[in-house]
Design a protein around this nucleic acid. Structure first.
Length: 585
RNA sequence: GCCGGUAUAGCUCAGCAGGCAGAGCAAUUCAUUCGUAAUGAAUAGGUCCGUGGUUCGAAUCCGCGUACCGGCACCA
């Protein structure tokens, strides 16, 4: 997918196109006032105040038409530089521009504006020299957007678009956008009967169908085995807990509105748990720990429930009931670095098994402008942030830093991926936490016999199994490798009446070695059944007819391939078993 | 939650401007017994999301609710 922001030529082109759009909007809506119109990765947008009017779907075509007309006229785009006073005078009737200008520092940046025909806009530039260069554009979508991103502010009208140098490139790009929709995990999940939603069950509450559940189960077995091999212990804790727990942890104060409502009883109040960290804290606290025993690594495949805002729900990428691959590492301060390195190593290891290559590490820091959102003092934050930074540097991992992305209890290392729809989502996370140990008064007995406070590292490798499956479906376009595929093999007798018994025998043999196998002995033509196996993306088809019955063999054909291979039953058993064991992609 | 949009058969969708509810695929039955991406014929299938209103008459127009979709905000 094209990155419009990072490509310099495209950036200029799209920025200019945003101005062309603004000019067209001004013609159609004379009352329009403009906020900002930046270039972003997927193209450009402009935030516009239209007074009482709003943009509707059909309006985009009208605006596009006006843009085409303006571009055809071909006006020169000229730059003027201004002093702050001149700029304030020029835009004095426009409170949005006044807001922008008054926050500019004259000594550091030149204030400039650009003019094309009857339209002038404040802008840093650069721009293309003539509007006639802006021919191959498309307005993609529109939405409301809070002024300055603050939900207490007015909602402005935001229109998104893209501009490319040639008609061919534009068409190819629009095509790519359409293609991406085909990879949408919601579409694939329905097609492959992985999961479903029901209005009767409730909004944002996924139900896992047999196919989806199978893949999920394989994933959770996989990660639990990996955790066992890395010294983790698995536990199970309840999904309903007393609010006392979240009062201690501080979550109730921070996230009450994002939890399902509190259930009041005669004595305590209860709540569906939005996460299970506090339960693991209580579990740690239930026994005495020696410095020799640390780190203690408690892991759980845990169902959690969050009352996500309606507009945030996105299939199983973001839902209200999900399953975390959660773990808490209770360690001594001197063990932090090694533990974070070990988890980072596990993440890289896992991504390799799945063949994920497009991801980036993000060091998530607190927002220095808004420190009261976070627990703990400045010194502690600075220390823990630099601890994470140090580990990343030592490991030589590429990463970027993001302010305001930390958890309220500490900084994080997040692994970000991009969904088919272009959402930037967190797949894995490592979080450093000095707060919960303090709040739950966790202890261990140190070498000198004195009580000491452990540090907690929260980590999720598959993140939530739900989101992981979503990403996996999108990455693989629904073509799961053999080891993850719900149905791994379908056995197709050429003529069920004659070859059905042998086909059933093949099915049994493969089931004996743990393969997930189906028998397709329906009264349909061979071609029909092969086609269906292909559309269902079943990795392996085994066809058996006279020749195979006679030679006790099978003819193997793989998903997406035309080639057929004849082999004996013993050979195919060994082949498939090895492929599952080695997680061949 | 906010701005905009959508909801018709199991699925994908048509139904223009208010006047008897439609197609393809899937399903069922029968015939066909077949060597690698669709054998043929027939049959069945609907609270047009729910609810209230406008109208002689509503899938169609309007209000409210629900779910979903695109963004925004949020994301422990």
């Amino acid at each position: 997918m094209i990155n419009f922001k990072e490509n310099e030529a495209l950036n200029t082109l799209n920025h200019s196109c945003a101005h062309l759009m603004a000019q067209a909007v001004k013609h159609l809506y004379p009352q329009a006032k403009f906020w900002v119109g930046p270039v972003v990765e997927e193209g450009f947008y402009y935030d516009i105040d239209l007074g009482d009017e709003v943009i509707r779907d059909e309006d985009l075509a009208k605006i596009e038409k006006e843009m085409k007309k303006l571009a055809k006229d071909g006006k020169r785009i000229t730059r003027h530089e201004l002093t702050k006073e001149e700029a304030l005078e020029m835009f004095k009737d426009d409170l949005y521009k006044v807001d922008l200008i008054s926050r500019m520092d004259e000594s550091e940046q030149v204030i400039s504006c650009y003019t094309q025909g009857d339209f002038t806009d404040l802008c840093r530039g650069p721009h293309v020299e003539n509007t006639k260069l802006l021919r191959n554009f498309k307005l993609i979508k529109h939405s409301g957007a809070y002024w300055k991103g603050d939900k207490n502010n007015k909602v402005l009208q935001r229109i998104y678009g893209v501009c490319l140098p040639t008609a061919e490139e534009l068409e190819a790009h629009l095509n790519d956008l359409e293609e991406a929709k085909l990879r949408d995990h919601r579409r694939l999940g329905k097609e492959l009967q992985m999961f479903m939603f029901s209005e009767t069950v409730g909004s944002g509450l996924p139900m896992w169908l047999p196919n989806g559940f199978t893949t999920r189960r394989v994933l959770s077995d996989y990660i639990m085995d990996k955790e066992l091999a890395n010294g983790y212990q698995h536990v199970m804790t309840p999904s309903v807990v007393s609010t006392k727990l979240y009062k201690i942890s501080g979550h109730l104060a921070h996230y009450k509105d994002d939890m399902f409502p509190i259930m009041e009883t005669d004595g305590d109040d209860y709540v569906l748990r939005p996460m299970n960290c506090p339960e693991h804290m209580i579990m740690y606290k239930s026994t005495l720990h020696s410095y020799r025993d640390l780190p203690v690594r408690i892991a759980e495949i845990a169902n959690d429930f969050r009352f996500e805002a309606g507009g945030a729900l996105t299939g199983i990428e973001r839902s209200r009931a999900f399953t975390q691959n959660d773990s808490h590492l209770f360690c001594r301060p001197d063990q932090i670095a090694q533990e974070i390195k070990a988890v980072t190593g596990m993440i890289l290891d896992v991504y390799k098994d799945f063949g994920f290559e497009q991801y980036s590490f993000r060091l998530s820091l607190r927002d220095p402008q808004n420190t009261d959102k976070y627990f703990g003092n400045d010194e502690l934050w600075e220390r823990s942030e630099s601890e994470l930074r140090k580990v990343l540097n030592e490991m030589g991992v590429n990463y970027y830093e993001a302010e305001g992305e930390a958890a309220f209890y500490g900084p994080k290392i997040d692994v970000q991926v991009r969904s088919a729809l272009g959402h930037d989502v967190t797949l894995s996370t490592i979080q450093l936490d000095y707060q919960l140990p303090e709040r739950f008064e966790l202890e261990y007995v140190d070498r000198d016999g004195q009580k000491a406070r452990p540090v907690v590292i929260h980590r999720a490798i598959l993140g939530s199994l739900d989101r992981f499956v979503a990403f996996l479906l999108e990455e693989t376009k629904g073509v799961l490798p053999l080891w993850l595929s719900p149905t791994q093999v379908t056995v197709i007798p050429v003529a069920p009446e004659h070859h059905g018994d042998y086909a059933a025998e093949v099915v049994q043999e493969l089931r004996q070695i743990g393969m997930r196998v189906e028998l397709d002995d329906r009264n349909e033509k061979l071609g029909y059944r092969v086609r269906e196996a292909q559309t269902r993306k079943i990795p392996v088809e085994l066809v058996v007819g006279d020749q195979e019955v006679q030679g006790r063999g099978v003819t193997l054909r793989r998903y997406g391939q035309r080639a057929e291979t004849k082999m004996s039953l013993e050979e195919v058993k060994e082949l498939l078993q090895n492929e599952v064991k080695n997680r061949v992609r």
